[in-house]
Design a protein around this nucleic acid. Structure first.
Lengths: 341, 341
DNA sequence: CTGAAAGCGCTTACAG
DNA sequence: CTGAAAGCGCTTACAG
């Protein structure tokens, strides 16, 4: 029922080879025959079967993407960047998740072996790096979208976590905040370490080294950010700024401060990290380090697609810069414009 | 280099036919040969090529999914529900977006014609319903995940938008709020109409019919929710409750009320719709109508996969219930627990 | 219980 | 400039 290349060939009175050639623009062909074939293709609404083409060519025109979860807000941003370029190039995007279970990794491995896609984009699910490295070494084109600190010798796109931490510190120092507190992400994440190092080094370089009690290991959740601040306040500890390493925990920090009757930013300034939509909707709106998430997805996809066209994959991270977005949680509003409160 | 069914056959000393049979568990086969073949498969780490299997069987074991965007928070939830079941069944998920541009629809149509997938799940991008219907009628298995009100005669999973609106009204009525304001979503959306109808009818049935000035047509954005409330307050209009038809606009409402110095929930109660994560993080936490997003994705995927196994697609919507989640934006906290403020 | 052969819908040397 | 044939890696009647 569905029409095939054989139908087109028959209708146009040529061989399948010729049809294939006009389809792919390969080889010299008589302008008139080409036009006739194109005509028939249009009339019949013929589209080559992706599966057959893939089998014959040994390439699927599909890029695989492995992510840890689809419910984290920032992943959607990266995905959107990826899919925009993948679709524009006529490729398909096959999506996989791995929730770190044995089972889910096995299922994914099977798809790899089945050659379901030509190359892989990955936001690394925890604990899968060894496997991904293996795939890469076995010859599968892989590009890592890295939120955990840069991997040397691996094609990846990353962001400037360290200088993001620095810019947060710089901003708070300029505001005269000398007694900040940091609420980090999970200790094992590279990004956590980078953001902390950039922040702490900047404070140290400016004569205000951080003491251990100013650093709380967190887990990137709203609840933990809130609880950490509440706990610190209950010990009587004082601070004039909080650098939370993601926006979600920063939002928890804002709530804890309000619950304690502490004014933001007058008494305590708050800076987050990510710049997810939530950061604009919190009250006060959150000053935060913007991660170029969409651009990272975009860059990773371009890198992979370029590789399919012969451009070698760079064996190093391509780094896209973060930048600080200043909002009301750190900057005291001037009263030039009438404030309805 | 990659190993094929021919390699397995050679190593096991049988025909490809036999290998295929043990792979697919079809036909009677000698237990000993089967065991030997299985052994070889394991040793060689053989996995059948997805593309070749697809071509030979005429099915890809891939489900396509079309979505309008990946950056809306609720889409991620639906996607997670979908992918969990799709992966569990050994299928792949091919993702497509359509931003309502001609070009993007054409690209998608090409993938359909190329038979890149066996069936389609769709969260309808605006203005594509005609095309989707066409596909369905042309024989492509399609399941709609519907946030716009139910389509009769179309396989889909929907939620109880109307009774969601009713439960919001019921709740506010029980709190003694007789002068509510509704901020809707885009007028053309079925869900907007349903939610409004449920809400308005319930108020009317309880002796408090809504007047036109109590209904503001919105657009589901934070800014619009905020601006709408600010504008109403500036006209001197009074109200004791706001029903915003999604959580994002409800968050904007909360901000506008705080900016105006109006206490929530004491003076004005606020109810949202969706129950996205943001609803828990706002301050006060938002009372909202929970949509079973993940379950909807789950149900839609199951419906489609069941169809592949011979279960006919129901030509009607499968409806999953919403339920009201009561939080601080509507319920006055009892002071039993010490409030740090 | 098992295999040889044709077929799925393309592409790609190889001839002419 | 064009076509016949083999091949991509499987599955599936059809025989035996």
């Amino acid at each position: 029922m569905p029409i095939t290349i054989a139908d087109v060939a028959a209708h146009a009175g040529v061989s399948k080879t010729t049809v294939s050639r006009v389809l792919n623009g390969k080889g010299e062909l008589n302008a008139a025959t080409a036009a006739r074939v194109r005509q028939v293709i249009a009339e019949l609404g013929y589209v080559p079967s992706a599966g057959a083409v893939g089998l014959a060519r040994g390439r699927t025109q599909i890029v695989g993407m492995l992510v840890p979860s689809l419910t984290w807000p920032w992943i959607g941003q990266v995905l959107q960047g990826v899919i925009d370029v993948v679709e524009a190039e006529g490729f398909g995007l096959l999506l996989f998740t791995c929730d770190r279970g044995e089972e889910s990794l096995r299922r994914f491995a099977k798809q790899v072996s089945a050659k379901s896609f030509d190359g892989l984009l990955v936001i690394e699910p925890e604990g899968t790096l060894d496997y991904i490295t293996e795939l890469h070494e076995a010859g599968l084109p892989v590009v890592l979208i890295d939120d955990r600190g840069h991997r040397p010798l691996f094609p990846s796109v990353a962001t400037t976590d360290r200088s993001g931490g620095e810019s947060a510190a710089q901003h708070l120092l300029e505001l005269g905040r000398h007694r900040p507190v940091v609420i980090t992400g999970p200790e094992s994440f590279g990004c956590t370490q980078e953001r902390l190092a950039g922040f702490a080094d900047t404070y140290a370089a400016n004569g205000h080294p951080l003491f251990p009690d100013q650093i709380v290991v967190g887990d990137f959740t709203f609840e933990q950010g809130r609880a950490a601040v509440t706990a610190m306040l209950s010990t009587g500890m004082t601070f004039d700024a909080v650098f939370a390493q993601n926006d979600l925990s920063a939002t928890g920090v804002l709530l804890a401060l309000r619950e304690a009757g502490i004014r933001v930013p007058e008494e305590v300034a708050v800076v987050g990290f990510d710049d997810v939509p939530l950061a604009s909707y919190s009250d006060p709106a959150l000053t935060t380090v913007h991660q170029p998430l969409r651009e990272m997805g975009d860059a990773a996809a371009r890198m992979l697609l370029a590789h399919f066209k012969g451009v070698p994959l760079p064996n190093a991270a391509s780094v896209l810069p973060t930048h600080l977005v200043v909002r009301d949680s750190s900057l005291i509003r001037t009263q030039l414009q009438p404030d309805p409160r």
